[in-house]
Amino acid sequence: MDEKAAEAPTGAPGSVPAIVVMGVAGCGKSAVGIALAAALGAVFIEGDKLHPPENVARMASGEPLTDKLREGWLDAIGERIAASVEQGQGVVAACSALKHSYRERLSGFCPEIVFLYLEIDPATAKWRVGSRKGHFMPASLVDSQFAILEPPAADERASTLDATRPLSELVAAAVRGIRGS
């Protein structure tokens, strides 16, 4: 982990991990989430795929989502997380979870959720989003995400990693923190 979080918070010993990889567009949520799920033998949930078509169309046209428009999407992610945990499966979800209230909403479905915040600067996020192909999120919306971003507070079940680090380092640090080693 980086200097902002020496260890990731963990659930009770032997508990099934429920992790949300969070941050602004371009921080690497999906890449880290997929690799982390594979390393933990967990199910991966791609939050972007759970957006309703109306939300995708709004974002593709450069319109940021409101809190109200995010509610159903957050609920869909929370329900999937809870279903995996109920089945005894570890789960890693990629979801921006930009505000404290969004993280609280997700935690309402599964109180054991641990958030892994991938911290990145606006310039790097814009460059990454502008460089990717075939994604609905335009680089023009990156600023709107930073405008509402509430990084996890010290009292949240969260840890922070520098999203500019190589993928292998991010996953290794997350696994160490989750396993408490």
Rank of each mutant, 00 (worst) to 15 (best):
L36K: 06
L36R: 05
A37S: 14
A38Y: 04
V43S: 12
V43I: 14
F44V: 07
I45R: 11
I45Q: 11
I45P: 12
E46W: 05
E46D: 14
G47P: 04
D48P: 09
D48L: 10
D48E: 14
D48T: 10
D48V: 08
L50W: 11
P52M: 01
P52N: 05
P52W: 08
P52I: 01
P53K: 04
E54N: 02
V56N: 13
V56M: 12
V56F: 11
V56I: 15
V56T: 15
R58V: 02
R58C: 13
R58D: 15
M59V: 11
M59K: 12
M59A: 11
M59E: 09
A60C: 07
S61C: 07
G62R: 02
G62Q: 02
G62I: 03
E63T: 14
E63I: 13
T66V: 05
T66P: 03
T66Y: 02
T66F: 01
T66A: 05
D67V: 01
D67I: 00
L69N: 15
L69T: 13
L69F: 14
R70D: 00
E71C: 02
E71S: 05
W73K: 01
D75C: 05
D75A: 12
A76D: 12
A76Q: 03
A76R: 09
I77C: 06
E79H: 13
E79L: 14
R80D: 12
I81H: 04
A82S: 13
A82L: 06
A83Q: 15
V85R: 04
E86W: 11
Q87G: 11
Q89M: 14
Q89F: 12
Q89Y: 10
Q89T: 00
V91K: 07
V92C: 06
V92Q: 08
V92E: 02
V92D: 03
A93E: 15
A93Y: 13
A94I: 09
A94N: 10
A94T: 09
S96E: 08
L98A: 02
K99L: 08
H100Y: 09
S101V: 13
S101M: 11
R103T: 06
E104N: 05
E104Y: 02
R105L: 00
R105S: 01
L106E: 13
S107R: 15
S107D: 03
G108D: 11
G108N: 04
G108Q: 03
F109I: 14
F109W: 15
C110D: 08
E112V: 10
I113Y: 06
F115S: 08
F115R: 12
L116T: 11
L116F: 04
Y117A: 04
L118A: 05
E119M: 07
E119Y: 01
I120G: 04
P122D: 10
P122C: 10
A123L: 14
A123Y: 07
T124S: 10
T124W: 03
T124M: 08
T124R: 12
A125P: 05
K126D: 00
K126Y: 07
R128V: 09
R128F: 11
V129H: 07
R132G: 09
R132N: 10
K133G: 12
G134H: 09
G134C: 13
H135Q: 04
H135V: 04
F136T: 03
P138C: 06
A139E: 10
S140F: 01
L141C: 07
V142K: 15
D143M: 01
S144K: 05
S144F: 03
F146E: 05
A147D: 12
I148E: 02
L149N: 04
E150C: 06
